[in-house]
Design a protein around this nucleic acid. Sequence first.
RNA 1: CGGGGUGUAGCUCAGCCCGGUUUAGAGCGCUUGGUUCGGGACCAAGAGGCCGGUGGUUCAAAUCCACUCACCCCGACCA
Length: 475
Amino acid sequence: MSKGITKRSEDYSQWYIDIVLKAELADYSPVKGCMVIRPNGYGIWENIQKNLDHMFKETGHVNAYFPMLIPESFLKKEAEHVEGFAPECAVVTHGGGKPLEEPLVIRPTSETIIWATYKNWISSYRDLPLLINQWANVCRWEMRTRLFLRTTEFLWQEGHTAHASFEEAEEETLRMIRVYQRFAEEFMAMPVIVGRKTESEKFAGAVHTYCIEALMQDGKALQAGTSHNLGQNFAKAFDVKFQDKDKELKYVYATSWGVSTRLIGGMIMTHSDDQGLVIPPKLAPLPVVIVPIWRSDEEQQKVSEFARNITKDWDPLFYKIDERDQYKPGYKFNEWELKGVPLRIEIGPRDVQNQQVVLVRRDTSEKITLSIDNLKAQVENTLANIQNNLFKKAKERTEANTFTVNSYDEYKERIDGGGFFRVFLDHTNPEVEQKLKEDTKSTIRCIPFDAPQEEGPCMITGKTCPYRVIAGQAY
RNA sequence: CGGGGUGUAGCUCAGCCCGGUUUAGAGCGCUUGGUUCGGGACCAAGAGGCCGGUGGUUCAAAUCCACUCACCCCGACCA
C-alpha cells in the first residue's frame, strides 16, 4: 500500500479517486467506465441493501426480479422515455453467433419490461396496489464516468408500483422519497434537501419527480435518490387497465423510485477526510477493529488472550482482531483509518495490566481509555456518538454552505465557490434554466418541500415567484 | 464528441531528446530467514518485464518514423 492520499485542498477530484482505490472500495475494469466493486465497497452496498430493503418491506413492498434484456421496441412505446434513454442504451444485436431478429436493449431502467409484464397481472382494482421492488444492475452508456458516481453499469434498486388513483400514486411517490430521506440521514448520516425536480430535470416519462439532494464537501450537489409519479404514461403506453369498483375500465397510475451505488460516492464525499475513508457506523461492514500491541511472544500471547476474552460474547461480524505480525501497530492504525473503520481498539501490555483498553474514534481521532467493565455497551455507545457526530458535522457544513442570494450578478460571482443557493428563479420557464446552465454551469436542484412562502422577482426574468428554489452545481 | 495526459515488474515511475556498457533499472509491494513492534521498522538473500499493438527505417530499436489500440483526467449529457 502506498502512503498517503492526495489532500482535498490540493485536488478534490484526485482525492476522491485515491480514497476509492486505496481504501479498496473499487477498481477499474478492462471495460471503459465499468468498475469492479471490491469487498470493502460491496460490504457497504450490502448494508445499504439490507437496511433499505427492510424499510421497503416495512412500507408494504415485496421484491421480484425482471430480466436484464429488453426488446428494443419496448423502449419506444413511451415517447419521452425513449427520447431520454435511447442515446445511452447498450444494445445486443447478436446471440448464439447469429444476428437477432430484434435487437435487445440492456436495461437502462426497467419501466418498460415491468409494465409489459404488469399488463398481465392487473385486471381488477383488487389487484391494486401492486408494490414491487427489484435489486438489479442497469447499464447506461454515459460519456463521462466516475467511480461510483456515474459508471456504465451500476447497481441499484428500482421500485415500480401500480395504483388505482393519481392521489394514491402521489402518496406512494412521496412516501418513498421520505424513506430515502430517512435512510440518507439516519444511516448514511448525510443530510439532504427534499424537493421536486423542475420540468426539464424530471425523469423521462414522469409527471413529476421528487428527489433528495445532498451537498458534498467541495460544494457540489449530488442527486442521491429520486421518486417519480409516472401518472398514466406507462399504463397507456403498455395498455395496462383495470376494472374499478364503478365497473369502468381505467388506466392504472404508476410510480417508480430508485437509489444506486452512487450513494457510496455520496457517503465518501460527505464524510471522508485526508486520512482516508470515513464510514458511518451503521453502514460499516466492520464497525470495530482491535489492534493488539506486543513485543515478546509472551506479551503477544497475553494480549491476544485478553482481546479474545473481552470479545468472547461479541458478534463475530462486529469486530476483527488484527493479529498480523508482519506489520507494526502504527502501520495498522494508518491502514484501518484509510479503510474507514469507525472505531479502533488498541490493546497493549499496559492495558492488560490495568484491565483497560484504548478506543480511538475515526471521526475525531479522540483516544479514550476505558475499563473493560461494561465494554460492549461503551463501544456501542461510542459508535452511536460517531454516527450522530458525522450527521451533525455534515448538517452544519451543509447549512454553512447554503446561501440566500437575490441578484443574478451576485449569484454568478459566488456559484463557483459551491453550495446550495436559495434563489428566486422562474422554474416554469425552460429558458430560465437554459440560461442559468449556460451562464453558470449550475441547475435548479429542486423546489424544496419546506420552502417558505416568500414572493420575489426571478433573478433572470424579474417575474414574480412564490417561493425560492435551490440552485447549485451538481455531479 | 472536444481538450489534455499516460501506456516499461503487482504499484509509482526513471531510461527515450542524442539508437549500441542495458544481460532493461529504482523505490514500494511480494517470498524466505533473522532482529523489531504504544502512530506507516530494519538487515540479508530472492522471485518478478519479449518496454500497449502492428508495420517501417537501420548492421542494431524501449529509444527514430507511421499507423493503431486502450485507459485515465478535464468539459458538454446523466442516478
